[in-house]
Amino acid sequence: MTIDFSFLARYQDALLMGLGMTLRLTLIAFALGIVWGFVLALLRNSSIAPVRWIAAVYVEFFRGTPVLIQIFWIFYCMPIFLGTDLSNFTAAVLCLTLYGGAIMSETFRAGMKSIGREQYDACHALGLSPWTRATRIVLPQATLRSVPVLLSNGIGIFKESSLVSAIGMMELMFIGTTISNRTGRPVEVFTAVALIYFVVAFPLTRLVTWLEKRILKRFAI
């Protein structure tokens, strides 16, 4: 069979719309996930033991199960608990946020842990108050150190967002599958879809590497 990508031109708008939805889902879930992840990281450092445990179980559970099953669980099971239907958009955002938050809480935690004891000693020797220490020394360093990994997590959410096609969300993956089914030309369609994901994700991974180097250099003390 001959490979011919030209017919895809007819589906350009559909594919772009799908990409738009993928990006929208990713950005919303990423933004909400950062906030949720930061809260989770704080909860995991809480002085109240049960709070720490619940947060830990939550994080481990979302990290330890397939995202696909999380999506199914939220889409099919949540409505039974809530007593109202969830639109697939809500379910998709909810799932990616809950999952992304779990992943990113680990990133924040690693960032906080990476601040060495000497930094705390220095704060102490200079007589900095706990508040100044938290806001001027710990938080900026933890955040700076977390930025590249958080961005990587964002790329992860972008890729995982393809799974919400399984609950009929009309994003890039879903539209690709539909076009492939309609035209019977999976080679061109799936290659094109893969390339679209790649074109977005690849430059971002370069950005992560670049940021990592810059930040490492700053912290190479």
């Binding site: 000693d121 020797a125 020394i137 912290f219």
Partner: peptide, 10 residues
Amino acid sequence: VFQHYTLFPH
């Protein structure tokens, strides 16, 4: 002043 540099890197 400590043995290891303890300047604030950021």
